[in-house]
Design a protein around this nucleic acid. Structure first.
Length: 570
RNA sequence: GGACACGUGGCCCAGCUGGAUAAGGCGGUGGCCUCCUAAGCCACAGAUCGCGGGUUCGAAUCCUGCCGUGUCCGCCA
């Protein structure tokens, strides 16, 4: 509660000076109270006891009696507890600045190899990244969402080779019928084309596949040297797959502003220029076969210290291109954020250290742990996957059955649109609500849970507020005042934390903080809804309506921020 | 083997720049729809914060050793 903190700190500072406390270390100690009943902010007085050689409880008592303002103060067991006065809180909430952000941010997320459909594991990146994009926008920052397209190298090379050399019959023959395409996704290019990739991977591992390996190697080599004919062939191969993947993301409400191709930095010469620069660094080294590396051990990297950026044949590596890409990205914005799986930690460290060595800034990176299934790791090859397309269908179907049961008054068209919104929102929220570094086991029952800590819980509170607004049928008058029972005070208190939480979520790149805040907001609204009726016996309580409306707006905005579709009725 | 994460009630998870009886949800038990949508609300039960040391007035939080899980340790991407 930064707003409350702002009015407490000045008077607290002078009170502390009066009793002989020096320094401002206490500002850090002034924190959110653990129990709501105790207050909003609390200050432990134990550190002062040491400095002043007095009893902490006594100090707290003395401070409490000398402070006053738009807050209540009480001393308890060596703590000083502050609580905002309800009227001040109401006033404050009605006039909050909701968009203090003013930096330009480039967020690169997803950037998945365009070789097959999304499974829920790969989608964690997209959902976290897009949520960060939305939260930054909600905060007022200028955001560009970018997809880095891996359009060269082995993976695309394999796909391109397969499409050029294998017929549909050959592919079907190579792959077992067991992992045949789900008829539901027949015609969706990512699901169809991945079979060529899988078939190629399968024969590559067979005996006597040396000539295939040579052919693929030639393609890859050409792409890495910027051969435009081969790059065009690659693009033709991956483009339909990427389109299929983007279709899935679009259904999730995820869109990108820009797509940047990896090959760009090879073709335009920035990669070779970069390699020349790296060669002049003092930690530079050359291996026996002419490959170049940086000895990052000299800069404190533990474990494997040689970071290779150039092969013996003079071509670049993925990480090298990534460095060139980062240098270009820094020209586009004030702040850079990357969303990466935890498997990229070392790589990101190497790229970051090299950027530092070059005098460049290091990007913020949000790492996330993998999503696994109860049966273990997700693997397309072993058939142990849940495709995002299937999850969305299941979620929607489940939502539809719930709506049908609860709302017999609705027609199928309306049920369909509600179910789509609920399904997509629930899937996203299920992923954003947990902190990214936590390993995550996907369970159908959790993904399809529409109660408790879920998107529909928040959506439901919002529709209640919408329902009230609809019944009143006009705008609220924010100038009124009235009685403030505890449920309303609590709602006001939670609302006043909106900007703090959003700011924290954005500045620390932690979407789950704001997602969990939305649950708090919805919970507080539900209590308010129960105790503070807006419409009583046909008459409207203007003050209650104003508070309800403010909550409705915050719910609506916050939901968009975490990727929940704000329905007006469900 | 080395590096980096994670380990909190039966299950999931917050808290981790040290502070008061460890916050929610699921599941369990018991209540609440002549009252603005019960996808909701209320109550109860349930926790050696992985284990052992250390620092501190105070440790889930910091340090250290161990155990368990995950990831990485390619002139792959």
């Amino acid at each position: 509660m930064d707003n409350l903190r702002k009015i407490i700190e000045p008077s607290l500072e002078s009170a502390l000076t009066d009793i002989g406390v020096t320094g401002d270390f206490w500002k850090k100690a002034l924190g959110t109270s653990r129990e709501k009943a105790q207050g909003d902010l609390s200050l432990p007085c134990f550190p002062f006891a040491k400095q002043l050689g007095r009893n902490p409880a006594e100090i707290a008592e003395q401070l409490a009696s000398s402070l006053s303002g738009d807050f209540e103060v009480a001393a308890a067991g060596g703590y000083l507890n502050f609580k905002a006065k309800s009227e001040w809180l109401a006033q404050n909430v009605m006039s909050m600045d909701l968009t203090p952000g003013n930096t330009s941010v480039l967020i690169e997320h997803t950037s998945a190899n365009p070789n097959g459909p999304f499974h829920v594991g790969r989608a964690r990146n997209a959902i976290l990244g897009d949520t960060l994009v939305r939260l930054n926008r909600l905060y007022g920052n200028q955001v560009r969402a970018e997809y880095y397209v891996d359009d060269m190298g082995k993976q695309v090379g394999v796909l391109a080779w397969a499409l050029a050399n294998l017929s549909k019959e050959q592919v079907d023959g190579i792959l077992n019928d067991a992992d045949n395409i789900n008829p539901r996704w027949a015609g969706k290019k990512d699901h169809e084309t991945v079979r060529w990739y899988q078939a190629a991977q399968s024969i590559r591992s067979n005996e006597g596949a040396e000539d295939i390996e040579t052919a693929i190697g030639k393609l890859v080599h050409a792409s890495e040297h910027g051969d435009d004919v081969v790059l065009a062939q690659f693009e033709q191969a991956y483009k339909p797959v990427l389109d299929g993947m983007l279709e899935t993301l679009s259904r999730l409400g995820i869109e990108f502003d820009t797509f940047t191709k990896e090959s760009e930095f090879v073709v335009n010469g920035t990669v070779s220029a970069l390699m020349e620069r790296l060669e002049s660094l003092e930690i530079h080294g050359v291996a026996d076969n002419g490959a170049h590396f940086l000895d990052l051990g000299q800069r404190g990297l533990k474990g494997k210290t040689d970071f290779f950026y150039r092969r013996g044949d003079g071509s670049s590596l993925y990480a090298t291109r990534d460095i060139a890409y980062h240098m270009w990205k820094w020209q586009q914005c004030d702040n850079l954020i990357n969303i990466l799986g935890e498997d990229h930690k070392l790589q990101a460290k190497q790229v970051g250290m090299t950027l530092t060595e070059l005098g460049e800034k290091v990007p913020d990176v949000m790492f996330y742990a993998f999503i696994k299934l109860p049966e273990g790791k997700m693997s397309t090859r072993k058939g142990n996957v849940v495709f995002m397309d299937d999850l969305l269908e299941e979620a929607k179907a489940h939502a539809a059955s719930v709506v049908r049961e609860l709302r017999s008054d609705l027609d199928e068209g309306k049920i369909n649109s509600i179910a789509e919104a609920v399904g997509v929102s629930a899937v996203r929220f299920n992923i954003v609500k947990v902190s990214p570094e936590k390993g995550f086991t996907f369970r159908w029952e959790e993904a399809l849970s529409f109660e408790g800590e879920s998107a529909p819980f928040v959506m439901y509170s919002h529709t209640r507020a919408c329902s009230i607004a609809r019944k009143v049928g006009r705008a609220a008058n924010f100038d009124s005042s009235g009685e403030i029972p505890s449920a309303m005070h609590e709602l006001l208190r939670v609302m006043s934390c909106y900007s703090d939480k959003l700011g924290q979520s954005v500045n620390e790149n932690k979407p789950h903080i704001f997602a969990l805040y939305m649950l708090e907001l919805a919970t507080a609204y539900n209590s308010f809804y129960r105790d503070c009726h807006v419409i009583k016996d046909g008459t409207v309580s203007e003050f209650n309506f104003a508070v309800s409306e403010k909550a409705r707006v915050l719910l609506n905005q916050g939901m968009i921020g975490v990727g929940i579709t704000p329905l007006e009725s469900m």
